[in-house]
Simulated scan of single mutants.
Amino acid sequence: MFHGLIPADRYYAYLSFRDIESMPNKENVIIIQTVGAVEQHGPHLPLMTDAAIGLYIVGKTLEQLDHDKSPTIYVLPPQYSGYSVEHTSFCGTISLSASTLTNVLMDIGDSVYRAGFRKLLFFNSHGGQPQVTEIVARDLRKRHSDLMLFSIFAWDLPNIAATLVTPHEFKYGIHAGEIETSLMLVILKEYVKMNLAEKEYPPTLVPDGGLLRIDAGLTYAWMTKDLSQSGVIGDPTEATSDKGEQILASLIASFKKLLLEIDAFNSHV
């Protein structure tokens, strides 16, 4: 029951130390550490939205893999809290400092290596911390030259979200908007309060057509309170479970393909 969305036979913490000690071909086993967040997502979504999305993608992907033909994969207990400093002005957000999250993930990586595994995937589903997991992966690679590291941001997986929402929403709906709300209507519908959903786009802090952006690329340091009073950046009122099902299916298909590539990957050629 502690494995949640992860298939029980893929949950690392259910193994005994003897299981791990005697596991064959450990250097090709893929270990996944999900990294999420516990942070405000407006008045209509639960704090665990990012963590829930990441766990759903991982769990449903593993359900679809053929156990006889698929890679051997185990998922570590989730790292729920992450680096969410941009949301700390909103009540309820639990944020680790970047240094704390870095140290935690480094220690986990060292432990995975010490157990004999040589493929570790950080699967991050919070937009505020891809840089942290990328730095950790690089530092672990430097420390352990035969450890293969993969730092994956869930929203970098190819998906069809852009085809289901307006261009304006796709560009500016970066937090608790239509896309995330649609996903949560599938993942944790009973905790989505659509009656409280409200639309709020950020003020025009940078000119349209300019080089500066709020979402990615040539961006600047912002706090959520700079962009939103409600905690929402986007329009969740247009969210539907049908859109959520389609987006999730595309994310899961991409992650399945990625896992098969990681299974075949060998950096020591």
Rank of each mutant, 00 (worst) to 15 (best):
I94M: 15
I94S: 06
I94P: 00
S95R: 04
S95D: 07
S95E: 04
S95M: 01
L96V: 02
S97R: 07
S97I: 00
A98F: 02
A98T: 01
A98E: 10
S99H: 07
S99G: 09
L101I: 05
T102P: 00
T102K: 14
N103G: 12
N103M: 05
N103Q: 08
N103A: 14
L105R: 08
L105M: 10
L105G: 09
M106S: 11
M106E: 13
M106I: 13
D107F: 05
D107W: 04
D107R: 11
D107Y: 00
I108P: 12
I108E: 08
G109V: 02
D110L: 00
S111C: 12
S111H: 12
V112D: 14
V112E: 07
Y113Q: 02
Y113P: 01
Y113A: 03
Y113L: 01
R114C: 06
R114Q: 15
R114G: 02
A115M: 10
G116K: 04
F117T: 01
R118A: 00
F122T: 06
F122D: 08
N124E: 13
N124H: 10
S125D: 03
H126Q: 09
H126K: 11
G127H: 05
G127L: 04
G128M: 02
G128Y: 00
G128L: 02
G128N: 06
Q129D: 12
Q129S: 14
P130E: 11
P130N: 13
Q131E: 14
V132F: 06
V132R: 02
T133V: 15
T133E: 13
E134I: 03
E134L: 09
E134V: 04
V136D: 12
V136C: 12
A137D: 11
R138K: 14
R138M: 08
R138V: 02
D139E: 12
L140G: 09
L140K: 04
L140C: 06
R141P: 00
K142G: 03
K142E: 14
R143C: 00
R143P: 02
R143N: 04
S145W: 06
D146Q: 07
D146C: 01
D146V: 02
M148Q: 15
L149P: 03
L149Y: 09
F150G: 13
I152P: 02
F153D: 07
F153I: 01
F153S: 13
W155V: 05
W155H: 13
D156C: 04
